[in-house]
Amino acid sequence: MLKGIYRTLTGKAVTERRMEMVANNIANSLTPGYKASRPVFKMVDDLIGSQGESAGEQPAATGSYTLSSYINFADAAMVESGNNLDVGIEGDGFFVVTLNNKNMYTRNGQFTLNNEKKLVTMDGNIVMGEGGEITIDGSDIKIESDGTIYVDKKYANKIKVVTFDDKTKLKNYGRSLFVNEDVQAVEKTPEKYLLKQGFYEASNVDVIKEMIEMMSTLRAYESYTKVDQFFSEMMSKLINLGRM
């Protein structure tokens, strides 16, 4: 039988995953602090398939795709909100929040206070400072560009901002959070960052790029379908050959 039809199948499966990633990016085009996922394709030579064939023959030049993805941690635009508990990070770094006694990382700086006057994310996860949990008791809140918080002109705490040497180890957790699952990766203070009070970071999804990605994905899928139809016709001709 023709092997090609199975190869278009893997291609189609990969293209579907790619489409799902694009859809997720588009759905989050207005999610603050969201970082777009990008698909990566690798072509794997189909060595196993060619082993049974006669020696000296070149491996079949078809390949099966494997898909992987990475998170694009590029900075996004800052949106001015005027809310004095909104903080945007310009440059490298993440805010540290605790969830189930575990450190999670986020770039979504839309914070609020809970009933104990602690600084929390919109989900109620506590935002960590250099000196532990951040308590803000007062009305005049000033956050300096290094994260130092002054409440009523008195030092209160400093917002902790950390980064990693290798950010590819960070995994999406959902709810605008990233989780570090590599024990060897340690938090470190980024060299260059600026905190901006009254701003929050928008999503870094580039809608034009996503539309192009979507179009190319759609057309790729269409091509696979065309090839499938072609194979189908060929096989149909082969089968009907005997009847002539």
Binding site: V40, S68, S69, R175
Partner: peptide
Amino acid sequence: QVPTGIEIGHGAMLAAVQKVFM
């Protein structure tokens, strides 16, 4: 070692509707 994995998100949701007391 696999340098990057495959994560597929399931979209967006509403986390909160906040009153802005400016």
